[in-house]
Design a protein around this nucleic acid. Sequence first.
DNA 1: TATTGTTATACTCTATAACTATA
DNA 2: TATAGTTATAGAGTATAACAATA
Lengths: 157, 157
Amino acid sequence: MPQTDDLSEDRGGPTVEDTVLGDLIGYRLKRAYMQIQPEAQRALAEDDLRVVSFSCLSIITDNAGIVQSELADALQMERSNLVVIIDELEQRGLVTRKKVPTDRRRYALTATLRGRRLRDRAAEKVRTAEDQIIGRLDDKDRAHLMAVLQRLEDNTR
Amino acid sequence: MPQTDDLSEDRGGPTVEDTVLGDLIGYRLKRAYMQIQPEAQRALAEDDLRVVSFSCLSIITDNAGIVQSELADALQMERSNLVVIIDELEQRGLVTRKKVPTDRRRYALTATLRGRRLRDRAAEKVRTAEDQIIGRLDDKDRAHLMAVLQRLEDNTR
DNA sequence: TATTGTTATACTCTATAACTATA
DNA sequence: TATAGTTATAGAGTATAACAATA
């Protein structure tokens, strides 16, 4: 098994490969996410979307009629922080807010046709950006990664 | 393959499983990290460490003599944001700052015995916390996950 | 009484610019 | 002229408390 216990210069990089830290899943997850996130951000910025607003638009698109507190639950964020995001999506004509007749405290969120189309286009761009980073990761490894991450998440529910 | 296209109530949870979003690696990575991070945070808080200060202490421990800008590179963070963190680690007697004789602009960082011991203890706690979340993930899946995440990260360098 | 959406606010993280001392 | 460490500050992102409307 390849293991580097040589701390001196190795291959040009700014040194430092840590094993104790590198063996922690949380650290590896964060590092991997840090590579992907900026590229996703850049791809979404072309359509004036942030990662969080894209996530909202995406879930609303696939779950027409969802209300804000449910959306907050789904994204594990505070419903108070959702307000301005939905405000913007609504102002841009991407989603609609409609009072639920049976419970007038709640607003049913639905993506407009324009919203759904934007979501599809943006998702495609993010996918392309991700694929470029994934590089040599073949389909089998990708599928396995996704399955394990999903399982990891499910284990905590 | 198991695929849910039923959007109605499934098993008590607050609904919502999105496929377009859920098929993005960035989203899955973030979700998985969101499950792990709070537990790691809680484990580290017992020793008055934050994730970032633990990461610093850990890298310094394994790379005695590293200077701040190298550490910033290693953790992919701004060196300006490192200052207060190292300040605190130094004040707690966990690391030392020593001017490098050959280049007096730089400070060599080294973990003290107490720092190294704290790192080892804290790492063990985080590991335990992670293992509890990982649950049924067996050694093979864990190893494969780590390898793929590492590869994913390496692909971008 | 409890919940939904909302507002305001505080707190943490991260990013940027500018300074100093050294090179 | 450039770099390391530092400071101050601005900007995100996130969390908390309180309120009005509704249940």
